[in-house]
Amino acid sequence: MFAQLLHPDVIIGILATGVRLATPFLLAALGEMFAQRSGVYNLGVEGVMMMGAFSGFWVTLTTGSPWLGVLAALLIGAVMGLLMAFISVTLQAEQGISGIGLYMFGWGLAGFLFRLLVGYVTSVDGFHDIPLPGLSRIPVLGTVFFDHNWMVYFSYLLIPITWYILFKTTWGLKVRAVGVTPEAADTLGVSVARIRYTCVIIGSMLAGMAGAFLTLGHTNMYADNITAGRGFIAVALVYFGRWTPLGIAGGALLFSTVDALQLWIQVLGIDIPYEFPVMAPYVLTIIVLALVSGRIWQPAALGRPFDREG
């Protein structure tokens, strides 16, 4: 039975699925990385994703344009990020709990609005796959990497982009400084609040986009609880990736490829209780992190509100 898994078509299938499944994690986790780098952890990603998924879907359903849908998801994400930033930065709230509040609020509101504005299961015409000319013809790699819709490409482009922003620009330097020693950054004239607001909002916008990917780039529909815990996984992946874009990408790909693998193991009828394949990605993520762990570094001011007047 396991021999079937080694068939080239199956392997390509698994890898291509893994690449596609990693997209929402990449978007949401790379966004959350900015927020955490600046010192704010937002547990509410799941709620923002739900709102992004719904608003993207609804705008597409009413206007017919998935592009407007993504725009709406980004906007809603920004608004929710603003709310989160206001509560956790300006009002210096305990971030864990405000994140949970944001999660409940967004998750519930999305379901509520869906009932109010749509109220039945339907599908939309989302984004189509764009095989990249030339590249998609490459054997194996072509199907695995270059035969997806633009959101998938965009999420992978984000890896170098965020790396560049974070490590090669002055703004990135400020973000990192604010996340480690906000007091020092403040004395150097960096506005801690402004940096944190920006980062939380960027993170939230990307989370909204991750939600929109689920409705516009993946299933082309919306249903209750479509995010199904993916927002929380995305938060976990930030820790997995040690706040670096490459680490996060590695985690997202690991998680989703194992997920794709377990689906195929089941599809090929390999006989083990299905719960074990289903839990495999979760177990593996922990094990891998445990194996590669060494001296841990984390943004020293993560979770700590900054108050200028002490």
Binding site: L83, Y103, F112, F114
Partner: peptide, 22 residues
């Protein structure tokens, strides 16, 4: 009313309470 509003209002209460804690 749709059951989802239950979660929404709970979330709002959490956000407001934690936000005003300061």
């Amino acid at each position: 009313i749709p059951a989802a509003i239950v979660f929404t209002i709970q979330g709002l209460v959490v956000l407001f309470v934690v936000g005003t804690d300061i």
